[in-house]
């Protein structure tokens, strides 16, 4: 029987929200669904060009000497988008030798497609903690809470003085 390796490469964005100048994690899963060992496996992703992304950690090109049949390997890369706007996340490429003495097989990953990269301003508007706004809100709430409290406190002090003496 011919025992050939067969590799599925799945590229995935781990972030829910992609933001300009914030970390963006990409995960690559390689599943060897074939019957044989895949050797000289090389994963490369050229979609994060220097003009659009800054590489924070990980490598966009990795090599494994072998991936056994029925096993899978995960690789992750963290980048930072430099610009906001729509970006088309295209395929990564894997190449491997599926069986001994055979030419290298090239495979594409899935395409994530166009995703919106939010600008920092937009991101803050939607998802920031809004400390400033809440602080101001608390400040505006203070008169209506503190004035009755003060009145209560004054009256309470006035009437509980006598009892203490006894």
């Amino acid at each position: 029987d011919d025992e050939k390796a067969k590799i599925i490469l799945v590229k995935r964005i781990l972030n829910d929200i992609i933001t300009e100048r914030n970390d963006l994690a990409i995960e690559y899963n390689l599943y060897n669904i074939g019957d044989g060992v895949a050797t000289d496996v090389e994963l490369a992703d050229s979609s994060f060009h220097e003009s659009d992304f800054e590489l924070i950690s990980g490598m966009t090109s990795v090599k494994w000497s072998r991936i056994n049949a029925g096993s899978n390997v995960t690789h992750a890369v963290v980048v930072q988008p430099l610009r906001a706007g729509d970006f088309n996340f295209t395929s990564a490429v894997v190449q491997y030798v599926s069986e001994k003495g055979v030419d290298v097989t090239f495979g594409y990953s899935n395409e994530i497609g166009e995703q919106e990269i939010l600008s920092l301003k937009e991101y803050n508007r939607l998802h920031a903690s809004h400390m400033m706004e809440w602080g101001l809100f608390a400040l505006w709430c203070m008169p209506s809470i503190d004035v009755p409290l003060l009145l209560y406190y004054l009256s309470k002090r006035k009437y509980s003085k006598k009892v203490k003496k006894n």
Partner: peptide, 8 residues
């Protein structure tokens, strides 16, 4: 021809 592709 000769290539492979993965899809999710």
């Amino acid at each position: 021809a000769g290539y492979e592709g993965s899809f999710q």
